[in-house]
Amino acid sequence: MADIFTVIADPTRRELLRVLLLRRPGEISVGELVTALGLSQPTVSKHLRVLRDSGLVRVREKGQHRYYSVDAEPLTEVQEWLSPFVVAPASAGAQLAAVPARGPGVSMPAPLRRAAENLPDVGDVGTTLGRVVAGAQSRIPGPIKKRLGHREQG
């Protein structure tokens, strides 16, 4: 199982699989993949080889061209492993409540706990940041003009 996780851990390989999946059930050439991903041909070929060796893609050779398609069968193992972690939206709260926030025997240091309790609400952060920026914008022009030798005419 670890091998398939290693294969799909790479973002370039996941993007290759996504592009191939969009063509499903059709095939796509290496040249088309290079264009779609904006990567070099050697880079695409290297990642396709890893996907091919893991059984995630099939290849059909026609002359000097290779055409690839997705074979999702190896991903069933990943899906089976992930299924206990995937929660339906309606029961998300119930299942998340059953998962302990910290592992057994792990305690959060008091300073860290206090800091976490005092974190502001996301909306408050945006409002506060907006006010600070607006205030800074109104205070900056005066000192800059004075420093540059300009005087406000009134």
Rank of each mutant, 00 (worst) to 15 (best):
L22P: 03
K62W: 12
G103A: 07
V30R: 03
H150A: 12
Q153F: 01
L82Q: 01
L112V: 14
R114K: 14
P111T: 10
G26K: 04
I144P: 06
P100H: 00
H65E: 15
L33E: 01
A116K: 13
L21R: 08
Q79C: 14
R151C: 07
E27A: 03
G154P: 07
R139A: 08
F5V: 10
I140V: 15
E77W: 06
S29M: 03
V70A: 02
R18H: 06
L39T: 03
L82T: 03
R23K: 00
L22I: 05
A72C: 09
L21W: 02
Q95V: 15
E61V: 14
S54F: 05
G130L: 07
S83A: 15
G142Q: 07
T76G: 11
G123H: 09
E61R: 15
I28Q: 00
R24G: 04
R139W: 12
A72G: 13
S40Q: 14
V7K: 01
E15K: 11
A36D: 08
S29N: 00
V86M: 13
T6L: 10
G103S: 09
N118T: 09
A36C: 11
H65N: 14
G31C: 01
T128V: 11
V57G: 03
P89Q: 12
S54A: 09
G26C: 03
G93V: 05
A110M: 11
G149H: 08
I4M: 06
E152P: 07
A136K: 04
D121M: 13
L51D: 01
R114A: 12
V50D: 11
V125L: 15
P120A: 09
P89H: 07
A116I: 13
V59K: 06
T12D: 09
E61T: 15
L48A: 04
L21V: 07
R151D: 08
Q41M: 08
R131Q: 10
A110T: 07
A98P: 08
A9C: 10
V7P: 01
S45R: 06
